[in-house]
Simulated assay, not measured.
Amino acid sequence: MPRRRKNRNCRILDGDRNFKPSGIPRSELNKIILDLDEFEALRLCDYDGLNQIEAGEALGVSRGTVQRLLLSGRKKIVEAILDSNELIIKGNH
């Protein structure tokens, strides 16, 4: 049985944020879900300029977890852009 997921300190994002290529109906697009913790790790490291240790402290997780979140989040964003998919950032519900 896997370990229970540790709570993460993420900003509140009301509702989902959707980004899609122009000119293609949403019904024809594949959806890629970017979890809020992946988005928050990207924001802290890439936008705010924190290193992974500082981001881990802000999120309440280890540096290794931040690294994993960054890798998966970046991969999803690049995949959405290259393959013309809809990117959905899941908000707090």
Rank of each mutant, 00 (worst) to 15 (best):
P2I: 07
R3W: 02
R4L: 07
R4F: 03
R4C: 06
R5D: 06
R5P: 03
N7W: 09
R8Q: 08
R8G: 02
R8E: 07
N9C: 02
N9L: 05
C10L: 03
R11H: 14
R11S: 14
R11W: 12
I12N: 08
D14F: 13
D14M: 10
D16A: 09
R17L: 15
R17V: 15
N18V: 12
F19A: 05
K20W: 10
K20C: 07
K20N: 07
K20H: 11
S22G: 15
S22E: 13
G23T: 00
G23V: 03
R26S: 11
S27Y: 10
S27F: 11
E28P: 03
L29T: 10
N30G: 10
K31G: 01
K31T: 08
K31P: 00
I33G: 02
D35G: 09
L36P: 06
D37V: 07
D37Y: 05
F39H: 08
F39E: 08
E40K: 03
E40R: 05
A41H: 00
A41Q: 00
L42W: 04
R43Q: 10
L44I: 03
C45F: 14
D46R: 15
D46G: 14
D48W: 09
D48M: 15
D48A: 14
D48S: 13
D48I: 11
G49D: 09
G49F: 10
N51P: 09
N51A: 10
Q52C: 12
E54D: 13
E54S: 10
A55I: 02
A55H: 05
A55D: 04
G56M: 03
G56N: 04
E57R: 15
A58Q: 15
A58H: 13
A58I: 09
L59F: 07
V61I: 11
S62A: 03
S62Q: 04
R63C: 07
R63Q: 14
T65W: 02
V66A: 08
Q67M: 11
R68T: 01
R68S: 01
R68A: 02
L71G: 01
L71H: 04
L71S: 01
S72P: 01
S72I: 04
G73M: 11
R74K: 13
R74F: 05
K76I: 12
K76C: 12
K76R: 14
K76V: 10
I77L: 05
V78M: 09
V78A: 09
V78H: 09
A80L: 06
I81R: 07
L82Y: 12
N85E: 04
L87V: 11
L87Y: 08
L87Q: 06
I88E: 04
K90A: 12
G91D: 02
N92E: 13
N92S: 13
N92R: 12
N92W: 05
N92Q: 12
H93F: 15
H93M: 14
